[in-house]
Write a protein that binds this DNA or RNA. Structure first.
Lengths: 225, 225
DNA sequence: CCTACCGATCGGTAGG
DNA sequence: CCTACCGATCGGTAGG
């Protein structure tokens, strides 16, 4: 049969990207040499430069491609016509499922986008902002009062903090499953945000009574200012 | 008056560490040259090597010193004899107050500890674990059932996610104050964790009724397994 | 405490 | 005369 030049091309390209993501995640973009990437991918350095014009092109391909995956995931969740809370739950499940198999790319995105040229950096940041805005909008639908960006975006960033920080401690083969993390975070966030305005002392049955927060210190009011 | 050699020594050393933390945060440890650090600190490269034996010693001084600050902050909160919830609130206030002025060190700790030698890396990680354990213990006291590490530590990491992720988006001169972040996170976490076992459908008044989570999918049960 | 350097290794590309 | 690659080495710069 005919020589599958295309297949080999794609396979080598995939091997290079995978090796680069792994090495960038472990030693950072600046701490990884192109010779190390080529060796890890099983190709010569000139061949690596045949596929990518320079080291930065590798980084951009990793970061931009990963953002495309996250954007597709956000779009898929939105296209299902779910009710607000079901939509929110679906989003978190989708994110954690993606994170489980994308730890390297996740780390590269967090720590190495700063090495991109300003144009490429701006392109990746724009996609990040689109993902954040989509999640912020989903949060806004959970609770009608969360309509202002000043309130929704910080809550979205707090939510992303909970799940994105997993790259520092959660392991795919560890005792806590990624899908369980999605559920814990979902419940914590919904319980934390839905029942009462933030900070205002909600009536909660507790053994030790805490001093009710003064109304003037309402964080929600501060966020909305 | 006598030449204040000691003062100059400490000042130069502080200038070097500050410059190093700023550059490491911006371009990472591997992407920063010692010449850049020396220039930013206003000293010659040989003088920099008079204070620090190599580049890694700078990194260790930043990371280890910052962990000492966080440990001191945790110890100070514990020494006040506060009730569980007040103790928890005090901890978050103290962390966010520290983070507000330690953005560079915070980023260096997150992204560059991996460049430390294994001994120094282990020393920093041990201090990080001590901080996490202290916060996990404080969470355990909030709710007596959170007594097992399998439950407390993931919740502590979720909490650290919320506040540590701020280094990617929260700015000291931005519209949202760090002290307000502390309050929002405190309320979100307490509301999210205290009232009901995680995941089990709690009776909440909502417009749109969501499907109650099946009992078998209780995240708390999974965490505790 | 500076100028002047070193062994090595960097990212990227030459000839064939 | 293409493409897809290799072994070898380029000019500059890193940490020290």
């Amino acid at each position: 049969m005919a020589r599958t030049r295309g297949a080999s091309f794609d396979q080598q390209r995939a091997a290079i990207i995978e090796a680069a993501a792994r090495l960038f995640a472990a030693r950072s973009f600046a701490g990884t040499s192109t010779a190390q990437i080529a060796a890890a991918a099983g190709v010569s350095k000139p061949l690596l430069y045949h596929y990518y014009r320079d080291k930065e092109a590798l980084l951009f391909d990793i970061a931009d491609g990963y953002m495309d995956r996250l954007l597709a995931l956000v779009a898929a969740a939105s296209s299902q016509g779910l009710a607000p809370e079901a939509h929110f739950r679906a989003l978190l499940r989708a994110f954690m499922a993606e994170y489980r198999t994308s730890q390297d790319k996740h780390m590269v995105l967090v720590q190495d986008v700063k090495f991109l040229s300003s144009e490429r950096h701006a392109a990746v940041v724009a996609k990040q902002r689109a993902v954040v805005d989509a999640v912020a909008a989903a949060i806004g639908r959970l609770k009608p009062r969360f309509t202002r960006r000043a309130l929704r975006v910080p809550l979205a960033m707090i939510l992303f903090g909970m799940i994105n920080w997993t790259f520092t401690w959660l392991r795919p083969d560890g005792p806590l499953a990624y899908e369980d993390m999605a559920e814990v975070v979902t419940e914590l966030f919904l319980n934390g945000v839905l029942p009462a305005p933030l900070v205002q002392a909600a009536p909660r049955p507790r053994a030790k009574a805490a001093a009710p927060a003064p109304a003037g210190r309402s964080a929600e009011r501060r966020l909305a200012k």
